[in-house]
Each structure stands twice: as structure tokens, then as C-alpha cells.
């Protein structure tokens, strides 16, 4: 996925930190779906928008009704991601995915049960293959990036 010439800087990758301990309680403790989706959209705002030049086709993840772009880089055995979407809830869902993987090693990422993770956060429906939101495709792309890059 990163064979394209244009790619975000290393600082951009490592600059994105998402602390699960701080982020996840707003989901596990949400009183209703409204709070949960508000938290999702707030979280999405933490992903810096990708510059227009980086919203290129080679970085696009297929299977999304909205547009979504994903970049990955491995630095010292740790995996970093940057992503963006033109839909706010999808962007929030991507940010949640990244919360689980950002800065982790390949083994941790490969072992993640993302369905269980979303269930626990009260968002079970959203990772279903029957949805057109594309989050499953993104989850698979995120895992694949970690697994494949380390093979090289």
C-alpha cells in the first residue's frame, strides 16, 4: 500500500498517539448510543486530515461507501498508521481501530480480536461484513499491513 511515491513523514506517523486508557472509557461508560456516537465523532477529530495530495487512489481502501485512505509505516518493529475518511463516523471508527494498533508490534496486532473489541465498546454492529461502512475492510487492511510489511 505504500509503494506510492507520496507518503506522510515519519514524524506524522509517530506524532499520532492514541491512548486506549484515556479513550476507551467514553465508549464503555457511554449511557446511550448518542453519547457513544458523539464520542466516536470527537475521537475522529484526533486523526489529522490527510493533505489533498495524500488522498490518492493508491491509498484508498476498497469496500467503503465513503472514501477512506490508509497509510502504514513500520519503525523499529512497531507499526504506525495514518488514516482519513470523508465521513465522520467512519473516521471515528477508524480512529478506534488505530487506538488498538498504533505503535504495537506485529504479533500483538495479528492476535487482536477486533470483533470482540468493538462488541466491548458497544459498537458490535459496525464491524459486520454485511455493512457498507467499510470498517471491516479497513480492519483487514490494517492487520494485513502489519503482517505483510514484516515479511519483507
Amino acid at each position: 500500500m505504500n509503494d506510492n511515491k507520496l507518503s506522510p513523514s515519519t514524524e506524522a506517523f509517530t506524532g499520532l498517539t492514541l491512548d486506549p486508557q484515556e479513550i476507551l472509557p467514553s465508549f464503555t461508560q457511554a449511557a446511550n448510543w448518542q453519547e457513544r456516537y458523539r464520542a466516536l465523532m470527537l475521537l475522529g477529530k484526533r486523526l489529522p486530515p490527510l493533505a489533498e495530495a495524500l488522498r490518492q487512489e493508491s491509498a484508498q481502501v476498497r469496500g467503503c461507501e465513503s472514501n477512506a485512505w490508509l497509510y502504514h509505516r513500520e519503525i523499529d518493529g512497531r507499526h504506525y498508521y495514518l488514516a482519513d475518511s470523508d465521513a465522520r463516523i467512519v473516521k471515528g471508527l477508524i480512529a478506534l481501530l488505530l487506538t488498538a494498533v498504533q505503535g504495537q508490534d506485529k504479533k500483538t496486532i495479528a492476535a487482536l480480536d477486533l470483533h470482540e473489541y468493538f462488541d466491548r465498546l458497544g459498537l458490535s454492529g459496525q464491524l459486520s461484513p454485511s455493512r457498507t461502512n467499510g470498517v471491516l475492510a479497513l480492519a483487514e487492511a490494517i492487520k494485513a499491513a502489519a503482517v505483510e510489511s514484516s515479511k519483507r
Binding site: 456516537y37 461507501e65 465521513a87 463516523i89 457498507t132
Partner: peptide, 21 residues
């Protein structure tokens, strides 16, 4: 100003079935 998919997801949360796309 909003993405049709966001609207669809939030309507679905309220039991409203519409098509977006």
C-alpha cells in the same frame, strides 16, 4: 454539509431504514 453515510448510520441507530449511497 454532512456525509450521507453518517446520516444513514445515525438513522439506523434509531430504527429508521433508509438507503444511503
Amino acid at each position: 454539509g454532512e456525509h450521507h453515510q453518517d446520516v444513514g448510520i445515525l438513522l439506523d441507530q434509531q430504527g429508521i431504514a433508509v438507503r444511503c449511497g
